[in-house]
Amino acid sequence: MLRILTIRLQIAPKPHLMAMKKDQPLFCGNIEPQERTFKSTASTPSFHTRILPTIKHDHQELVYHSQKIFTSTNPDEQTRYQNQFTWELARHLIGEELVVYPAIIASLSDGQEAADRNRMEHQGIKEKLKIFQDLASTDPRFVPTLRGLMDDFGIHARHEEDVELPRLESMLSKDESVEMTKSLDRTKVFVPSRSHPHSPVKPPFESVAGLITAPIDSVADLFRKWPDGKKG
């Protein structure tokens, strides 16, 4: 069943995050949690979790899915987790760019520099993800491409977890941090689920490009295989 999402985009001077209204998330609409969720020994954070543990959990999901690929010798299973990994990583990257990085810019003294560096790192990851998502699991480049991607992603994720996100958290109240998590979760519902490295990477153009691309990805997802044994 298709739901019509009402999206409110505002063009205004960048406010400090502390001054943003808590009842005005970035995206508004009747949005339910995604059905294709992470299942592993790691606990799933609730909708009311602060942003740092939420991002850490995203990173753990991606490591989990990559390990399922590395340890499997079944091409069909590898394809299923390839789709899951791509779906998770593509949405994670764009979600950060739309929700977390603007907050970093607004809250940290070197926020613009930090956001620009992270966007540049994202670009490299997106380019490798684009290659990986299009490879057959039987291709000899399949596993090496994922290993190279995870090497880059691991460096990026550790810096976020150890440096920038703790600094951002220190500037936020608990309520503000939880609201950011909610906004991130809402945003992930309708951003692209595949890598499009040539799309714009800075607001407001990245959000517009994402809204155009996401429905195409969602339709294609219906015909892909997933780890739950069903098609999308």
Results as ranks from 00 to 15, higher is better:
Pro192Gly: 00
Val178Ala: 01
Glu176Thr: 06
Gly210Lys: 15
Val189Thr: 15
Thr187Cys: 13
Lys182Asn: 09
Ser173Phe: 06
Ser183Pro: 03
Val189Pro: 04
Met171Leu: 14
His198Glu: 12
Ser207Trp: 07
Met171Tyr: 09
Met180Asn: 09
Val189Asp: 14
Val191His: 08
Met180Ile: 12
Leu172Pro: 01
Pro204Ser: 00
Pro197Trp: 05
Val201Cys: 00
Asp175Leu: 06
Val191Ser: 02
Thr187Val: 04
Val208Arg: 03
Glu176Cys: 08
Val208Gly: 12
Ser195Cys: 00
Arg194Ile: 03
Ser199Cys: 03
Ser177Gly: 07
Lys202Asp: 11
Val189Tyr: 10
Leu184Tyr: 09
Ser193Ala: 14
Ser173Gln: 06
Phe190Leu: 07
Leu172Phe: 07
Lys202Arg: 13
Ala209Asn: 14
Phe190Gly: 01
Lys174Cys: 10
Pro197His: 05
Lys202Met: 11
Met171Ile: 11
Pro200Trp: 02
Ser177Gln: 04
Pro197Thr: 10
Val201Glu: 05
Phe205Asp: 06
Ser183His: 02
Pro203Arg: 10
Gly210Ser: 15
Pro192Gln: 03
Pro203Thr: 08
Ser193Glu: 11
Gly210Pro: 13
Lys174Phe: 13
Ser177Thr: 05
Met171Ser: 14
Val201His: 04
Pro200Glu: 01
Lys188Asn: 05
Ser199Asp: 12
Ser199Phe: 03
Val178His: 05
Pro197Tyr: 07
Lys182Ser: 13
Val191Gly: 02
Glu179His: 11
Lys202Val: 06
Val201Met: 04
Val201Gly: 01
Arg194Thr: 06
Thr181Val: 10
Pro204Asp: 00
Arg194Cys: 08
Val178Phe: 02
Leu172Trp: 04
Glu206Pro: 01
His196Thr: 02
Phe205Ile: 02
Lys188Cys: 13
Ser183Met: 09
Asp175Thr: 14
Ser173Trp: 05
Phe205Pro: 01
Thr181Asn: 10
Leu184Pro: 14
Lys202Cys: 04
